[in-house]
Amino acid sequence: MSLSDRIKIAKRVAQELKEGEIVNLGVGIPTIIPDYLDDKKVYLQSENGLLGMGPTPSDDDIDMDLISASKKPVSMDKGASLFDSSDSFLMIRGGHIDTAVLGALQVDETGEVANWAVPGETILGVGGAMDLVAGARRMIIASMHLSKDGSPKIVKKLSFPSSGTRKADMIVTEHAVFQFLEGKMYLIETLSDVSIEALREMTDAEFHVLEKTKVETN
């Protein structure tokens, strides 16, 4: 997983965030999005109790009591607020999060997400994944296209435990942007020079290509 690919995904997701939104950033790629918002004003929430999360601080300003969901140092924007985890989850469960940006272990072709457990392996655990899947008004998945072993992360059917029946609205990978509409997956933009034929080979799920799909030509 190259840093340049992670940055590409974060920058593309940042384009989807709207002025004035309250946005929760999950573990992994989502936590680097604050560095690529430019002047766009969104209110970033971390489930460990921060609203108004800012970009990565300089080395001189790092305070490890102030961290993201990935336990990485963050800054606070002017007017930010701190609160305990129970209040954070009240915001999430109460429907006060406009957009959740989450990582994923798998996403199926209808947009159902698995991002908390791999059978037979010990990983981080559920965290706030199920609450965010159920509670956020919109869900964007920020993920590498393939897993570390080269297997597809975008699959016809989940083989890992689901995070909830609520479906994602969009997934952004280093190669493509897909939208989920009425249980179907649509390619709306390519982000690398990979051909659509090659994209189909690395994507287990079936997807449709719209006539207006933006194709990377570099």
Rank of each mutant, 00 (worst) to 15 (best):
A136K: 03
G135K: 04
R166F: 13
H96V: 11
E112F: 12
L158C: 05
H96Q: 13
R93S: 08
A134T: 14
V172I: 10
E112T: 14
I97G: 01
F160P: 07
K78H: 14
D59I: 15
K148L: 15
M76A: 11
M144E: 14
G79I: 04
M91R: 07
S143Q: 05
S58M: 10
A129K: 06
K71R: 15
V118E: 09
S143R: 07
T173R: 02
E109G: 08
T99H: 04
G127R: 00
K72D: 10
T173E: 02
D60Y: 12
I141G: 00
L90A: 14
G49Q: 10
I140L: 07
E121W: 11
K148C: 12
M64N: 12
S70N: 09
A136D: 08
V133L: 06
V101L: 03
M170T: 09
L44E: 00
V42D: 01
V126W: 06
M139H: 12
R93L: 05
Q106T: 06
G111W: 05
T99W: 01
E47Y: 15
E121R: 15
G111M: 02
D77Q: 14
L44K: 04
G79S: 04
V113D: 08
D131S: 15
K156S: 04
G79T: 03
V177D: 06
L82I: 11
F89K: 10
G95A: 04
Q45Y: 08
M144T: 15
F180G: 05
H96L: 13
G111S: 03
D63E: 02
L90G: 13
L44W: 03
M53S: 05
M130K: 09
G95D: 03
R93K: 11
P152M: 05
I62N: 07
M64E: 13
Q179H: 14
E174H: 00
R137E: 09
T110W: 03
K78V: 14
M53E: 10
Y43N: 12
I67N: 02
T56P: 08
L44Y: 09
D149C: 02
H175C: 08
D65C: 08
G128K: 01
S68H: 02
Y43K: 12
G150T: 07
A114W: 03
V113A: 07
S58C: 12
S86R: 09
E174T: 03
M130I: 13
D59S: 14
I97M: 00
K167G: 04
V118S: 09
R166T: 15
M130T: 11
P119V: 10
F180C: 01
D59Q: 14
R93H: 01
L51Q: 06
P152R: 00
L66V: 08
I140Q: 06
S68L: 06
G111C: 02
L90F: 13
P57D: 02
D63W: 00
P161Q: 01
Q106H: 09
A114M: 01
S147T: 13
S147V: 11
K72I: 11
D60V: 13
P119G: 04
M53L: 10
L102H: 02
G120W: 04
G52D: 01
